[in-house]
Design a protein around this nucleic acid. Structure first.
Length: 827
RNA sequence: GCCGAAGUGGCGGAAUAGGCAGACGCGCACGACUCAAAAUCGUGUUCCCUCCGGGAAUGAGGGUUCGAUUCCCUCCUUCGGCACCA
């Protein structure tokens, strides 16, 4: 006697163990099949797996399973982004080595992940803090260095005072300019640091040709890179020193009535006259003290001081004063601007406040501008005036060379040798140094004589020391205080050299993990070439959108840089990107331990089983949207699971009419099955997981009715059962395996079955009910054969009672037949 | 301010290509089973009215159309990105 009690707590772990023992989810290269690389963002091992992890992993797992059933050779790997500050902060707090903390968490999370019943290929697991992994992270750094893409430079950088480390610009967020990790406002520091030359790829990163990425990610990256087209122009001080400026509006050059330099500009002291010395240095000191937030506040009153120095406007030889003001940033353009108060609102406000000259050079036809009375800058189109040879040239609202005024002036500047066409970017090189312990060491040594040199390949990896017990954040890497770790040998002369004690940004580790999955234990190369050629590029990448301008930009850069080094192929690492939304807590806020509103998946799995949790995560919200958690809703899915269980384990139900179903009932059942198959196939393909579930629910409801009508035992019923389990298998791998193998007695495993094909003729309705509208309102419904002609439908509609009533004997003005959908009668 | 995404019952959401708005589920109400509860099953559930039948309704207003949740315009709200970027 078969056990028909519904007990996921027993069969789920049993199947998980069997699948693993049978290596059911091993993905090995197989040239006979098309490949599908489904990648999902790997987690930080920061503690327990939370419901957000389940939300980001199990629906993509279902899709990967669906792809596999469709005949693809699917790779769906998992790993851990294991370096990072969490581990180090725990070390400080609990006085435990970050390695110990990290690996204990990984072990726990692995166990938790196994309860998901996901098709992760654990033999391909990669952990970024394993020496066999970070050896190659270091190796990549050296490759970039050797090709001039990694360099060391002193610069003003963002510093998180809480995490005590520098940050890349991408890791500083929002108006408040806070640290991406901990939310602390960042400060500026002048430090010598390692950078990657990401800006070399700015233009290429703006192109998304041939990749299917969400619009808002592309827009976000485009904004982040912030390309502006314009011209650079050389002004000269009266003493003859050149001051280069960048402008997007060379057409307004004749209206440049003063210049403004950033307080940090190197020429400030040279142009400042003795009598202005004091006020200028006071202003500089004050600017230095201010935080970025204060300084860059949008509604801030303009401040500034006159240097006493003058420059010559190269287009009209006007002598114009040079001011210093903090609204000009050293970090953008050249740190100096030509000020055109008539046509730039910021310059306008500044000029009004300090009584500087305003000369309009573009005005609308018939609307005369006057610098003395103008109330705001005129930033739009018009015709050039007061501009020597260019008077009368039309200026449009177009940016760059599309604007005839900009084009004409730029070409003239180039002829005259005063300036040239130029492009500026917001985007900055990637600051990679972190003053922290738990990261991949930067594999460089410094020798008094030979400067910086990479650690030779045969000495990689540079390992992190185990014998360290001082974690207090000092603003410098704890590695610096280890008694011997930093002692090294210069690879050029063999004399003493000092090791770099900063570690790399963990985003470096996650820039290439998708390639390490290909051969995680290869000790000859970061990855096996044959594996690369077979699996890459990633076909589908899923994860959170918070990485839009961080990870998702870094790894595009990384791929392109490696391509130029001959390591990777193709222009993009990922073809299709999809982002899941966020699971909020029931109180509609973010889940967090401190608020005590987190939903623990372990508890849910214990209570309902993994299949139910998986299905609920697919059902409770649009996956790409996310929603607040609803702890009641899961009951509906639990009910559905039990109903499916009952439907399959009690095949005849209460009906004693098995096999007695009418031909019509059997046909209807088969139609519903194939319509569902069509829908489910489409929805899996398009990440519409919620409707996969609702379609399956509809079908099981239909099957209950069909069984009642005597369908059990018929071929249609057998097909329905078989197809049902196949369609449900990606969603709920355990219950379907249990029913398939143990109750239907079909060959193990359901997960190796082929996805069924839709029988279009079975899916087609033979009669259809068509609503009939009179003046846009539904007044009746007619039933016609699905292949009825427009003429037949029309006459049936006109003959219907509802239409006759509203026609009141008159002729309709117009009748529209929308094939198979609706008839619209206009009276 | 600029750019992007979204706005549908009490709630999550559904609606291939412009064609029956509210599928599926939660919640709620009533009923069956039960000594009772849970579970299960059944019925109902957008709002309004004079409840036969009709009217209104997809953030607001307008447009195109025989017909708009879907397309266009204006606006509002929420979320996200950028922002004294020259």
């Amino acid at each position: 006697m078969k056990d028909i009690s519904f007990n996921p707590g027993v069969y789920e772990p049993n199947w998980q163990a069997k699948w693993e023992a049978d290596k059911l989810y091993r993905s090995v290269m197989d040239e006979s099949k098309p490949k599908h690389y489904a990648l999902t963002m790997l987690p930080y091992p920061s503690g327990d797996l939370h419901i957000g992890h389940w939300f980001s992993m199990t629906p993509p797992d279902a899709r990967a399973r669906f792809k596999r059933m469709q005949g693809y050779n699917v790779l769906f790997p998992m790993g851990f982004d294991a370096f990072g500050l969490n581990a180090e902060n725990a070390a400080i707090k609990q006085n435990i080595h970050p390695k110990k903390w990290t690996y204990a968490n990984i072990e726990r999370m692995r166990k938790q992940m196994r309860t998901m019943g996901a098709m992760f290929d654990w033999e391909r697991e990669a952990v970024s803090s394993d020496p066999e992994y970070y050896r190659w992270t270091e190796w990549f750094f050296i490759q970039l260095y050797k090709h001039g893409l990694a360099y060391r430079k002193k610069a003003t950088v963002d510093w998180c005072p809480k995490d005590n480390t520098t940050l890349a610009r991408e890791q500083v967020k929002g108006d408040e300019r806070v640290c991406e990790r901990c939310g602390t406002p960042v400060i500026k520091k002048e430090l010598e640091q390692w950078f990657f030359k990401a800006t070399k790829y700015a233009d290429e990163l703006l192109r998304f040709d041939g990749i299917d990425w969400p619009e808002f990610i592309k827009v976000s990256q485009t904004n982040w890179i912030g390309r502006s087209e314009g011209a650079s122009v050389i002004f000269k001080t009266e003493a003859g020193d050149p001051i280069e400026i960048f402008t997007t509006r060379p057409d307004t050059l004749w209206g440049a009535t003063f210049m403004v330099m950033s307080p940090e500009h190197p020429l400030v002291d040279r142009v400042t006259t003795p009598e202005n010395q004091q006020s200028v240095s006071e202003y500089k000191a004050q600017a230095e003290k201010q935080t970025d937030i204060q300084r860059e506040a949008k509604d801030k009153e303009k401040t500034g001081v006159f240097t006493g120095g003058y420059a010559i406007n190269p287009v009209n030889n006007e002598r114009i004063p040079i001011w210093v003001a903090d609204y000009v940033l050293m970090s953008y353009g050249t740190g100096a601007i030509m000020a055109v108060p008539a046509h730039d609102q910021r310059d306008f406000e500044f000029a009004r406040k300090f009584g500087l000259k305003i000369v309009p050079v573009i005005q609308l036809e018939g609307v005369e501008l006057n610098g003395d009375t103008q109330e705001a800058a005129h930033e739009h189109e018009g015709v050039m005036i007061n501009s020597g040879p260019f008077d009368g040239t039309p200026a449009t609202n177009d940016k760059g060379m599309k604007n005839p005024a900009i084009k004409a002036v730029t070409e003239w500047l180039e002829q005259k040798g005063i300036g040239k066409r130029d492009v500026n970017y917001r985007y900055r090189d990637w600051l990679i140094s972190r003053q922290r312990f738990w990261g991949a060491p930067i594999p460089m040594v410094h020798c008094e004589t030979h400067g910086w040199n990479p650690v030779p390949d045969d000495q990689l990896p540079v390992l992190l020391p185990n014998d360290i017990d001082e974690w207090k954040p000092t603003g410098e890497s704890p590695l610096k205080f280890h008694p011997t770790w930093k002692d090294a040998t210069c690879p050029v002369c063999g004399e003493y050299a000092v090791r770099e004690t900063d570690t790399m940004d963990t985003f470096m580790c996650s820039s290439w993990y998708h390639m390490r999955y290909l051969s995680p234990h290869n000790d000859q190369a970061p990855f096996d070439e044959a594996e690369y050629n077979y699996w890459m590029p990633v076909d589908t990448y899923t994860g959170g959108s918070e990485h839009a301008n961080m990870h998702l930009l870094y790894f595009r850069f990384f791929h392109k840089a490696l391509r130029d080094l001959g390591i990777t192929e193709g222009n993009e690492p990922v073809m299709q990107l999809r982002n899941q939304g966020m699971v909020l807590a029931e109180d509609n806020r973010k889940m967090s331990k401190s608020r005590g509103n987190v939903v623990a998946p372990d508890v849910l799995v214990q209570r309902y089983g993994a299949d139910t949790v998986r299905a609920y995560l697919m059902f409770f919200a649009r996956w790409q949207q996310g929603a607040p958690w609803d702890s009641n809703g899961i009951e509906g899915i639990a009910r559905w699971m039990r109903r499916v269980w009952t439907l399959f384990t009690d095949p005849y139900g209460a009906s004693d009419s098995a096999g007695a179903a009418s031909d019509q009932a059997k046909k209807n059942l088969r139609r519903k099955v194939h319509q569902t198959l069509k829908r489910v196939t489409h929805d899996f393909e398009n990440f519409e997981f919620n409707t996969v579930i609702s379609s399956l629910m509809e079908l099981s409801n239909e099957m209950y009715k069909a069984r009642e009508a005597g369908a059990a035992g018929t071929p249609e019923w057998e097909e329905a059962k078989e197809y049902y389990l196949k369609m449900m298998a990606p969603v709920a791998p355990h219950i379907t395996e249990e029913l398939w193998t143990n109750h239907l007695g079909k060959p193990y495993s359901i997960h190796q079955q082929k996805w069924p094909n839709v029988d279009e003729s079975a899916a087609k309705e033979d009669t259809i009910e068509i609503p009939v509208q009179v003046n846009g309102k539904v007044r009746d419904r007619i039933t016609v054969a699905s292949d009825a002609s427009d003429e037949e439908i029309k006459s049936a509609a006109l003959a219907s009672e509802g239409v006759q009533k509203y026609l009141e004997g008159k002729e309709p003005r117009k009748v529209i037949v929308a094939k198979g959908r609706l008839v619209s009668v206009v009276v």
